[in-house]
Amino acid sequence: MKILVVIKQVPDSTTTIRVRPDAEDIERAGVKMVVNPFDEFAIELAVQLREKRQDVASITALTVGPAAAAEALRTVLAIGADDGIHLQDPAFDRLDELQTAALVAATVKDAGYDLILRGKQEIDLDSGQLGPALAELLDLPHVGAATRFELSADGKRFAANRRIEGADEVVEGSLPAVVTIEKGLVECRYPSLPNLMKAKKKPVRTVTAADVPGVSDIVGALGGTQVHRLEPPPQRPPGKVLKGEPAEMAAQLVRLLREEAKVV
């Protein structure tokens, strides 16, 4: 069984995000970048499947991103992927998720992956489209936001749970398939420092636009969206502090809730 884990490098959730003066991107200098946490669940699941089973032949990690995204790839290699594919070209920088999915599909369509894993969403742009779009373009079944995932003994079928309003949906299907992972399905390990060192020696293949035949036609045929500009969210208005005796403050609070917040 060959597993592909598609990851994205995103700004760390603890960094302060600032929009660049030209409004085309966020300020990236000095921003700490990490592996998208939902994609970490995906690689963790892949590694756990290999630890539990005899039939996982390889785990490949793939990312689309600038040169710096190699660091995210290396982290995933340290967690347990065997090799990496880094789609890196200035032409890829402004693709939307559907176009990115088309690019990934064109790259991996003949590689024979049995299971393609991805986080259910990205914590930066939050679209969550890449997994489902990739499944569609590869004509594979897709399960989104899986909270449980198991393979049959013969490795031909899978069972997964999804959390839906008021119930758990239990689905089954056959491989190959694309599954996106919800938080909580697995608990991620830290990459160990010896494995970080070994990860440097694992092979990473860099793929440019020239390596994907007809990529501009494939991507161009899809149309797609463009980010027009980024705007910082509006400043939060300052809070109000009520003063006076408890009874007066309660009366003020009720009036504000009714007239300004309009919640009572």
Binding site: V34, A70, E71, R74, A78, Y190, P191, L193, L196, M197
Partner: peptide, 22 residues
């Protein structure tokens, strides 16, 4: 904030940055 006022992190190798982050 971290702080890294003199961009010392940029003087580290990728491996060293990853070790620190981990």
């Amino acid at each position: 904030a971290s702080p890294d006022f003199y961009a010392v992190r940029a003087l580290l190798t990728e491996e060293e940055r990853q070790v620190q982050e981990t």
